[in-house]
Write a protein that binds this DNA or RNA. Structure first.
Length: 448
DNA sequence: GAACCTGCGAGGCTCAGGAT
DNA sequence: ATCCTGAGCCTCGCAGGTTC
């Protein structure tokens, strides 16, 4: 009789239910069910556990059949030993022997338990998880420590991770980032560029990066996932397979946990998405303030090549609004696209829309009359509208004097300018889903 | 201009473990 | 007990670039 059927027979003979036994073993019911059904292998250690609960001896059940066990003697450098054991034996894992493989268990079970115990990890706050692949061995097996507040999956967010080199010559402890998030958002190629930028930005924010950290890692891999790990590295420490047993990696892990916690503080109450949105805002071509926008417009105006292409007039189409971004001071702000503002200036023929006779000076970057862009309905009022305020229909071209007056002038003078702009733009605003009365507009400008 | 190389991405197949 | 999801890999078609 097969081992799985035998186990089932013994359990049923003792009138123990599947769920009761699974509960005692602290295993998922599905696991026990699959083992009994023969669709999942059982390791020697698991069999030992099972036999204890069934009140049977392993020898009686398996007879002469011997199953190799993973070494279990403990000493001071147990963690290094286990990593070494894993790396040395990982080469023997293949597609055919993957299921229930004892070597894989080292990284998915043994080492996570060891790290949790040796470092006295608070499991409420942290999650320790390892993987050697799904269904088949991974090119780069990994073991992560997640701060649950930030992420609990390696697909996105920021976390500590041990990454084993594909050629099994060593491994890295890395503060790294989930590449899948970038891949899904930007595509594989662009995602790699973005994740590198993000790593660089994060590095600049951190003060506790250990001095011997590596900023570039080489996993000797070919697959895109591995390449993603390389690109996502923020800071890393390398362990060669030859010296791994001499390293007391507990101290390194503590240092990197300190670093990770510093990062946790920087992210603050923001979600990972909000944090990345802020980091990559400029990369994605957006600005957060009017001042930054002015600079960006100047830059765009020096690039003349696509001038004709982009200037097409008011589209008259409602545009989906972008999510707000939480800046480093915890303030909620809306991104603005300088291309939209630049286009608005072009559409106005670089004239002041309050009075086209208003004289300014010549802009150095394009030799045209200098005007500034101004969002008629202020961008910070976005919450009151269902559609984006960052559209050409809502951006006016005005001379600097009028612009300063709108911001800093006396209410009576400000109102005259606003009314003029409002009358010109009202119909266009209606078309793009930005209907607003003059009384409401005055309120946005705090004019009584 | 054909042959070859490289990289990307969709679809298929796989096993483990969580959810229901 | 069954369904579903997932830091996985492989294969294949396509697009773009390079070499001869």
């Amino acid at each position: 009789m097969e081992l799985n059927s035998k186990l089932k027979q013994i359990r049923e003979g003792k009138s123990i239910t599947l769920s009761k036994l699974a509960e005692k073993l602290e295993w998922p019911i599905s696991k026990l069910s699959k083992i009994e059904g023969g669709s999942q292998d059982i390791t020697f250690k698991e069999l030992e556990e099972l036999c204890v609960h069934l009140g049977e001896s392993v020898h009686d059940i398996v007879g002469e059949k011997r199953i190799t066990n993973v070494g279990d003697d403990l000493n001071m450098r147990e963690l290094s030993k286990k990593f070494s054991e894993f790396i040395v034996n990982y080469g023997s894992v293949n597609r055919d022997n993957f299921g229930g493989n004892d070597v894989i268990k080292i990284i998915t079970k043994v080492i996570p338990e060891l790290i949790t115990k040796d470092l006295d990890i608070d499991l409420q706050k942290f999650l320790v998880k390892g993987s050697g692949g799904n269904g088949q061995p991974a090119e780069v097996p990994w073991l992560s420590i997640f701060i649950r507040d930030i992420t609990t999956t390696a697909t996105k967010g920021l976390y500590l991770v041990f990454l084993v080199k594909a050629d099994l010559s060593g491994m890295y402890l890395s503060l790294n980032q989930g590449f899948t998030y970038f891949k899904d958002k930007y595509g594989t190629k662009e995602g790699k560029v973005k994740i590198r930028k993000a790593a660089k930005e994060v590095r600049n924010l951190l003060n506790t990066i250990p001095s011997d950290s590596l900023f570039n890692i080489d996993l000797e891999c070919v697959n895109s996932l591995g390449k993603g790990y390389e690109a996502g590295n923020i800071a890393a420490k390398y362990y060669s397979i030859d010296s791994i047993l001499n390293d007391d990696m507990i101290y390194d892990i503590r240092d990197y946990i300190t670093l990770y916690e510093e990062l946790r503080g920087i992210i603050g109450d923001r979600t990972v998405e909000q944090f990345y949105d802020y980091l990559l805002l400029k990369e994605d071509g957006y600005e957060l303030s009017e001042e930054e926008e002015v600079e960006a417009i100047n830059k765009i105006l020096t690039l003349k090549e696509d001038e004709e292409e982009y200037c097409v007039g008011f589209k008259g189409e409602k545009k989906e609004k972008k999510d707000s971004i939480i800046d480093n001071k915890g303030r909620k702000v809306y991104p603005r696209d300088p291309k939209i503002a630049t286009n608005a200036l072009k559409l106005a023929g670089y004239k002041c829309e309050v009075d086209e006779n208003h004289c300014s000076f010549t802009r150095k970057s394009n030799g045209k009359n200098y005007t500034e862009s101004h969002h008629l309905i202020p961008v910070n009022c976005q919450d009151d509208f269902d559609f984006s305020l960052d559209v050409e229909e809502n951006v006016c071209s005005i001379c600097s004097t009028c612009h300063n007056c709108i911001h800093y002038g006396e209410d009576e003078e400000r109102m005259v300018l606003l009314e003029k702009l409002y009358k010109e733009r009202k119909d266009h605003l209606d078309k793009v889903g930005l209907s607003v009365s003059f009384a409401e507009l005055k309120k946005y400008y705090k004019i009584k």
